[in-house]
Simulated scan of single mutants.
Amino acid sequence: MSILAANPQILFTEVCKRDYQHHQSWSNSSCFSLQKTAGCFQFDCRNRSWKKISRRDLRVEAFWPDFSRPTVVEMEPINDCDHLDQILLRAKELSQPILIDWMASWCRKCIYLKPMMEKLAAEFDTKIKFYYVDVNKVPQALVKRGNITKMPTIQLWKDGEMKEEVIGGHKAWLVIEEVREMIKKFL
């Protein structure tokens, strides 16, 4: 969570409100927060005690980024049929599906979709590997092998063969949701 606030008091107040509303919604809560004029307090029902939360701790909680997971994973390019065969063989050995985004550098929807696909790749970082093919920079044999007629086309490959595809001729957020559902189906 990040809040932009000119005044640290506003930040402190907003985080305390968020914590209070979050914990108040639990029926059997183990703790909840309460803001008083002296600061923000947290009550632990197990120990039956109040704990004061300092403003510095709240600032760290609100602005410290989560480095445990990547936010974006760059997709790797596929250059030719031999490269695709190596990738498919490696994925088959690991029994892991791969996702290939067939795109073109002149396609506006492809350009808008690529950063969103890289964010989606971060979401499924260890479960599936994401690749892309720029159809103008590879041999046409590779494009024919993928049976590509429209761009962008996102295909899920498993066990060396194409299982399902999404053709992205509509809004990018809809395409991402369809791809997410397709991935969940094969994981």
Rank of each mutant, 00 (worst) to 15 (best):
F63T: 11
D57T: 09
N47C: 04
A62P: 06
R59D: 06
E93Q: 09
H23Q: 12
S49M: 08
Y20C: 03
T13V: 14
R48K: 08
E14V: 04
E61Y: 13
V72Y: 03
I87F: 09
D82N: 15
R48Q: 14
P97R: 03
P97G: 02
N28V: 05
F63E: 05
R55Y: 04
R69K: 10
N28T: 11
I78A: 00
D80E: 15
C81M: 14
P77D: 07
D80N: 14
V60F: 04
P70I: 00
K17N: 06
F67M: 08
I87L: 09
C40N: 02
L88V: 05
N79R: 15
H83P: 00
V73P: 00
Q35V: 07
A6F: 09
D82S: 12
I87D: 05
F67Q: 11
F12M: 01
E93W: 07
T13D: 15
F32Q: 06
R48L: 12
L94A: 10
C40T: 00
C45P: 01
W50S: 12
L58F: 05
A6I: 06
W50H: 14
Q21W: 10
D82A: 07
S27G: 06
D66I: 09
Q21L: 07
K36W: 02
S95P: 00
L84H: 03
Q24K: 07
C40K: 01
F67L: 15
V15A: 00
R59V: 08
A91M: 05
W50M: 15
L34S: 03
I87E: 06
T37I: 07
N7H: 14
I78K: 01
S68M: 09
M75Y: 02
P65C: 08
D57G: 10
N7Q: 10
R46Y: 08
T13S: 14
A6V: 02
Q24F: 04
V72E: 09
S2Y: 06
N28S: 09
D44H: 10
E61A: 08
W50D: 11
S54M: 01
N7K: 11
A62S: 15
P8R: 06
K92W: 02
A38V: 03
I10W: 12
S54C: 08
S49T: 10
F41C: 03
S54W: 05
V60S: 03
Q86C: 08
W64A: 08
S25A: 12
F67Y: 15
S27H: 14
E61H: 07
C81D: 10
Q86S: 14
Q96K: 13
V15I: 03
D66Y: 14
M75C: 03
R18L: 13
C31L: 05
P65S: 11
S54F: 07
E74I: 12
F67K: 13
R18S: 11
D57Q: 14
Q35Y: 01
N7I: 07
E93C: 11
G39L: 07
F12N: 03
Q9A: 15
V73T: 08
W50E: 12
M75K: 04
Y20G: 05
V15E: 00
V60G: 02
I3W: 14
L89S: 13
H22E: 14
R59C: 04
K36H: 05
K92Y: 09
W26F: 09
V73R: 02
R69Q: 10
K36A: 10
E74T: 05
Q86H: 14
F32V: 04
